[in-house]
Design a protein around this nucleic acid. Sequence first.
DNA 1: TATTTTTTGTTGCTATTGCAACAAAAAAGA
DNA 2: TCTTTTTTGTTGCAATAGCAACAAAAAATA
Lengths: 214, 214
Amino acid sequence: MKRIFDFNRFCENLQAHCALTSTKKFKKDEVITTYLLKRNQICILLSGEAFLIRYTDGGQRHILCTFKKGDAFGETFYRLHTSKELFVLAKKDSEVLFLPYDKLDSCNKECTYHLQLLRELPDLFLNRMTEMNLRTELLACHTIREKLLAYFFSVKKEKGSSSFELPLSLTDLADYLVIDRSAMMREISKMKQENIIMKKGKTFKIIHQNEMEK
Amino acid sequence: MKRIFDFNRFCENLQAHCALTSTKKFKKDEVITTYLLKRNQICILLSGEAFLIRYTDGGQRHILCTFKKGDAFGETFYRLHTSKELFVLAKKDSEVLFLPYDKLDSCNKECTYHLQLLRELPDLFLNRMTEMNLRTELLACHTIREKLLAYFFSVKKEKGSSSFELPLSLTDLADYLVIDRSAMMREISKMKQENIIMKKGKTFKIIHQNEMEK
DNA sequence: TATTTTTTGTTGCTATTGCAACAAAAAAGA
DNA sequence: TCTTTTTTGTTGCAATAGCAACAAAAAATA
């Protein structure tokens, strides 16, 4: 993700110089934060990996977003319209930087970092939105095959190579695309048979790209 | 939608005092703008109604967003990840205010309105995001029935009454939820038979709300 | 008002998908 | 290393949804 300013350096400065900032480490599968309460908190993933999760009434798990190093999250970035609780779960051991959103312009005089962040907020929002747009588009595909192909193309585009490893396990992918895992596996098998994709372990390759491309 | 400041008044001031601002009227079914090019343009709907539309490769029409008076849109608010073109179509005769995003802080000294807008941008983004989150959640429902019920609840919540008129035609609703219209009609018939909903013309009412509620 | 267009409503058929249940392989943990 | 847990892979069956095609009602237009 292109960032207009040096995000890593910015985070370091924030930690070193801002009294309102705190960092915390999380073990795999721990809850980093929830989106139910108006926490007015911005979270930045310094290391590790995390998922934004919702459980449906039926008990199904949906993966709404995946966060990598440098991604900003928190309910500040996801205005809710239902009261269904969302969780951010550490997928791997992670370190997270927390800072309050509502105090962004009322920190002490020497702390210019909050103001800097304020200026970057529209861009951070847009980064979130881009990811959400992707998932929405995937969910809007009619068939499992179309969902998979659209997803594979997005990974291919991001990695810049026609062979790529999925950033998610197949189990997680099914929860991200909101499809039945076994039905998805069946479709993957069919696509292998029909020579549309190749699969060796975790590495996929798209062979026939007819339309859709780009 | 709650706005922190008086949006209507703000638009009036902008039109009256800012040289970079322009307004234009559109007839029903005219294209207001497209999201393909980097227009760096912010659009505000002053009157009327508009849809954000995408056509799939298969020729299907998807309604991605619906805009009402006061809503802000433009590719600035929808960072794309594909090169698929999006259209904003006037659903009714409409009037739209246009202003350039990238010149927000470089207008003449007397024009304080751009700066004001800049401060409001995160909030405007979040309003957009809330609507997109709603649709994503609807698309994530497994069955047509669940999609419909979730949608009905969102309308009910917005209108504050258990009886409500849909803001979309049923044909448009199917394109918004990305489901086959005839299958949707069949499901609505079933739900009427099973006494889950009532329907008189365009007015719906939810009878059994078991879970899901709120 | 009369005519055209759009929306609503209905149905049969078929393909797709979800569910359940299970086995094998791989990964994680002791 | 051995054991346990998670992930991957497969299949039959039943329910759901999409497609096509059409008729009636409503809305828009002349």
